[in-house]
Nucleic acid binder design. Sequence first.
DNA 1: TTGTAAGCGTTATCAA
DNA 2: TTGATAACGCTTACAA
Lengths: 330, 330
Amino acid sequence: MAFLKDIAAAAGVSIRTVSRVLKQSGYVNEATRTKVMAAAKQLDYRPSLAARALKTGKSFEVTAIIGSVDELHMEKIAGLEQALRAAGYSVHIFFSTTPADRQDAGDVLDAVLQRQPAAIIIFPNSLLPVKKVKARLAETNTPYVFLDTGHAGTNTVNIDRQQGVYEAVKYLAAHGRRHIAYMGSPNNNTRLAGYERAIKELCREPIILATAGNTQQDQYEVGRKNIETFLAANPRPDAVQVFSDVMAMGFLAALHEHGIAVPDDVAVVGFDNRRVAALAWPRLTTVMQPNRELGTVAAEILLSKIAGRKPPADDWYRILSTKLVQRDSA
Amino acid sequence: MAFLKDIAAAAGVSIRTVSRVLKQSGYVNEATRTKVMAAAKQLDYRPSLAARALKTGKSFEVTAIIGSVDELHMEKIAGLEQALRAAGYSVHIFFSTTPADRQDAGDVLDAVLQRQPAAIIIFPNSLLPVKKVKARLAETNTPYVFLDTGHAGTNTVNIDRQQGVYEAVKYLAAHGRRHIAYMGSPNNNTRLAGYERAIKELCREPIILATAGNTQQDQYEVGRKNIETFLAANPRPDAVQVFSDVMAMGFLAALHEHGIAVPDDVAVVGFDNRRVAALAWPRLTTVMQPNRELGTVAAEILLSKIAGRKPPADDWYRILSTKLVQRDSA
DNA sequence: TTGTAAGCGTTATCAA
DNA sequence: TTGATAACGCTTACAA
């Protein structure tokens, strides 16, 4: 490890001059500059991030507070890390998935703030009370962004799920499907709204496939059990937009068991584009969430905030588009 | 933010005494101790990790170098983070998935070492030349551990895939299957060895289902195409142990298309216990890898190394057991 | 049992 | 255009 003083010695100048050259601040004689640069390169100088953090009170680390162990998050993290690393930042991860996680860490947020991260990114369902977090973060003046909270708000990157479902339903209609149903909780939610908007535009009757009180159940089981409401529906749907890929897999299993052909008898469209969608039988047409992009956009916002840029008109709110992935099930 | 000096002032003692109390080192008068503790708590003191890192040359951060964006890694990371956090460490992640990643970071390892991590954990397929890494790491005296390298070696936590396949094949035999085949590359690999060991013990003939030169192809496609070797096999297998869940999904799709019933006509066992296994149709019996445990065991090793403990007899080599997850396909 | 003081490697103020 | 030098907050040898 080479330090500033080593370079200074090697180049025959003072530490301050070396620093000046390396940080490109202030006037430096071209000759000295070259000399210093050469020495730095020669000694393979890498600044001590710890010293820098101590001195400036800011680290080059961004902390991601993750709310669940989910394959989709992995992509978000990858996007985030890639974009952040390009700007010289590294990513810290911190799980907050169970109530115990919060206890262990005392207050999760305080544990995170102790490391003086340059910024914080909060993943969905992190068990953190949003309001309190925002207040605390504002107080410590730490840039932050929320990911995929599901409802509009400042300092957030969301996914336009409504539009995703809307487009999928339009696609089904354009491919000759007459009775397009939606499977999922009938309670207020964004995806249902997208379905309803599309159905209305198509001047058709909505068909909601749902079993009572299935909110907290396993999605796969819900999809599987919903075969009954499907079979009972009159007219019987020839297409179903399902809440999620996982629920769609349950529904698919039930359809197979009943000898109902997909997509010939019913078209099925999922949501999420999980790995499973490409592996299902038949391969599942689904709505892709821009997970990687979610990460990179979050990184951009964070970097802008760190750089002290003024909030744009939307006050750091972004909503990203989904995309229909056509496969064999619809 | 409260600092040592604030506590010292509040308690009317010197910084040194505060430090002594907080670190529980050396003799401290009980009354002073109480006074200091109270002040620390009152001011919600949290040590500056940056200052500590600068002073000691060691951070409380462990860097994980990740080789691919894979759902299974997410679990490993979760296990790692949980165990490490309990010991006061936090986890840094660093992707090294593409050749570009290496270039961007100059030398990945140097970029990582610059942050003076307390330890490093290297995930499978991280594009890093193992020997060079070990040398560099030994040189900088940084504790490290490799994850799931696939071959025995020191400072490594592996998964006993051979045993996993062995047990699955035995399970199939115990459930009355006569002609148990293995699907996957016929080239030397651990899983195949497990299959061969079991078949030998059962005094049966091995049946290897493979298409030529499929090494680099998409596993799903390989499984799908392998239906041909399956149909051509004589006798036709009534059970197949497939290389991976993904490959099994391809095979399953082909079986469905040929109207071959699972598990009635053929039992199918996958490997990995990915999320997809529980969602497949039929639900896939498969061999579970102890991903979370892999993370926690790696954390234990790292913590031992950090604590300066002497290497045990196995020189930090651990191999973890898999577990058969029975579902509907076998 | 407690305190003084010297660093860790960087940044940045102030002179020269 | 350059150089002393004082922090940043913590750890720790050495004194008292």
